[in-house]
């Protein structure tokens, strides 16, 4: 919690309105982060993360970096989290974390190591940040937020920027390569489908439904030919066929009418 104390120190030096917003949004951001770890359903975790990202974006805007803040909302919350949601939804609705512990004592160790890592990181960060004097953002004269970022990105840091975009493009193309499955036999048009359908030995019409000419229309009842024999095309692969007994097939008087 040294981070928080440090941030509180920052907030004190800022204006009152900023402090109010900070104390409203900081617990929400932390709550989102905790919710991400603790929620059992993947979508809830993703939503908690989205809440944290939104709070961070508002922090950026408050620190007079509106461009960064809105780009954070558009790119992280709008695009990247939406992709996460998309993938999670493709997995299905009931994908939950398995609560079965496969490694003995794993949970206890994870808590201990997690707390240790947090203490290490926050103490290091506190030592690095404690001596800093908070200064107003200094933009060159006549330059706004956007121009400042553009200047830094496209002149000072042009090479790293290009390298990063190259790496991202390679990663995206690589993912496409892995996901790409070449279609077997090429595209089959209407003509091929039609030829197949009317090929000798294939019945071009729709399959007979269950229960045609039979005494019931249950899925289990095979269709009968006019001569009384069973039509093989109406047999289901999955439902074992049987003829209903006359008692089963008789009207059940569900409409409240005696007939």
């Amino acid at each position: 919690m040294i981070d928080l104390a440090q941030a509180a120190g920052l907030a004190q030096s800022a204006s009152a309105g900023e402090a109010v917003f900070f104390w409203i949004l900081a617990p929400i951001a932390l709550g989102g982060a905790i919710g991400l770890v603790l929620s059992r359903q993947a979508i809830h975790a993703a939503l908690s993360l989205a809440v944290t990202m939104m709070c961070l974006a508002v922090f950026y805007i408050m620190q007079s970096a509106p461009f960064l803040g809105f780009v954070q909302i558009m790119v992280y919350t709008g695009a990247i989290m939406m992709l996460f949601l998309f993938v999670l939804m493709l997995f299905g609705r009931d994908s939950k974390d398995s609560m079965f512990e496969t490694l003995r004592g794993q949970r206890l160790l994870a808590v201990l190591l997690g707390v240790g890592l947090a203490a290490l990181l926050s103490s290091g960060l506190a030592r690095a940040v404690s001596g800093l004097v908070i200064a107003e953002p200094t933009a060159p004269a006549g330059q706004g937020n956007v121009e400042g970022i553009a200047e830094a990105l496209f002149s000072t840091y042009l090479f790293p920027f290009e390298i990063v975009s190259g790496v991202l493009t390679v990663a995206a193309v690589g993912a496409l390569m892995f996901a790409h499955v070449a279609k077997k036999g090429g595209h089959r048009g209407q003509k091929e489908h039609s030829r197949e359908r009317f090929a000798p030995g294939n019945y071009p019409g729709p399959r007979p439904g269950p229960g045609v000419f039979a005494n019931s229309d249950s899925t289990a009842t095979p269709a009968l030919r006019p001569d009384g024999s069973i039509e093989p095309a109406s047999l289901s692969e999955y439902v074992p066929p049987r003829q209903l007994t006359p008692a089963e097939a008789a009207p059940k008087h569900t409409e409240g009418r005696e007939s």
Binding site: I43, L47, A50, P66, F67, F70, V71, I73, M74, T77, G78, A79, M82, L85, F86, M89, G144, N145, V146
Partner: peptide
């Protein structure tokens, strides 16, 4: 303000959450 067009784009990006959720 300086980047107000981005507000509309950000809001339309967030509005999808309503539909997807």
């Amino acid at each position: 303000f300086e980047v107000s067009v981005l507000v509309i784009l950000a809001c339309s990006a967030l509005g999808v959450y309503g539909i997807v959720l």
